[in-house]
Design a protein around this nucleic acid. Structure first.
Lengths: 129, 129
DNA sequence: TAAATTGTACTAATTGATATAATACAATCA
DNA sequence: TGATTGTATTATATCAATTAGTACAATTTA
């Protein structure tokens, strides 16, 4: 199960995207393991106080990208998605590269950026170092 | 003047936002200096082949944020915006910080990230190191 | 077998952002 | 005076996001 989080209605990020990212992050962090059952569409919709269609949209995107699989009457489950996660890391690196060059073009000093990197990787994140 | 660039219609980034970012980057890089005249709303609209309202929206946003100033009958000009640029750098750092922690949570190795930083700052960008 | 659960599909409707189009106005410049 | 310029307005069109309601088929549960 899991997926106990809050929706940010002030964010410009669509609700279905927030759900997508949250579930994906929980899988990536190992908080959700392969074959583990996710909250049902209606459950999560009730918990978050939103429309089941919105949850369904997030789940369908996750399934399209190979992170979960679903079956009518059964529910949705975490897939074996190590390869997909590897691809995600690559795309994340490309995204980071773009942002780094933007920061550089704006005149952000390299030392400031390196300090950020050190901080992010020393403070340690949500475990699983 | 300046602002000779191409609009990316395939991008999910709105046109007015692309104009905003382009002008802001040219100011940040010193390609446009304080008190320098920008292309007029109609000029830039003609050059880019878009509606003047779209250019106007970008310019109005730039003015609201203190990067340029406009006057009817005169035109639009680069403002003294060193403080605004300093604030922009801070926000860029915060944005970068968020992305770095996301990458970390996804399991991207620190060394991979540090390589990106080195590459971005060694290859050198659009001059003004 | 019957009833409840579940993912999915579909239509309709609303809202907001984006963009174009066509004017119009007031201030400025030549 | 006449052209230029930023700005404002109104109307229109498109698209994404979301809600709402309903329904269906497969599965599980009792």
């Amino acid at each position: 199960m899991l997926s106990t989080f809050q929706i940010n209605y002030r964010s410009d990020e669509p609700i279905y995207q927030q759900i997508y990212n949250e579930v994906l992050m929980e899988i990536s962090l190992g908080l959700l393991l392969p074959q583990e059952k996710l909250a049902t569409v209606r459950e999560l919709a009730m918990t978050l106080g939103i429309n089941p269609n919105t949850v369904s949209k997030a789940y369908q995107l996750l399934e399209q990208n190979g992170y979960i699989y679903s079956a009518v009457g059964k529910g949705s489950f975490v897939a074996d998605c190590s390869e997909q996660l590897a691809g995600l890391k690559e795309r994340t690196l490309r995204h980071l590269d773009k942002d780094l060059r933007t920061a550089r073009d704006l005149g952000v000093p390299a030392e400031d950026v390196r300090s950020l990197v050190d901080a992010a990787y020393n403070e340690g994140g949500k475990s699983n170092a």
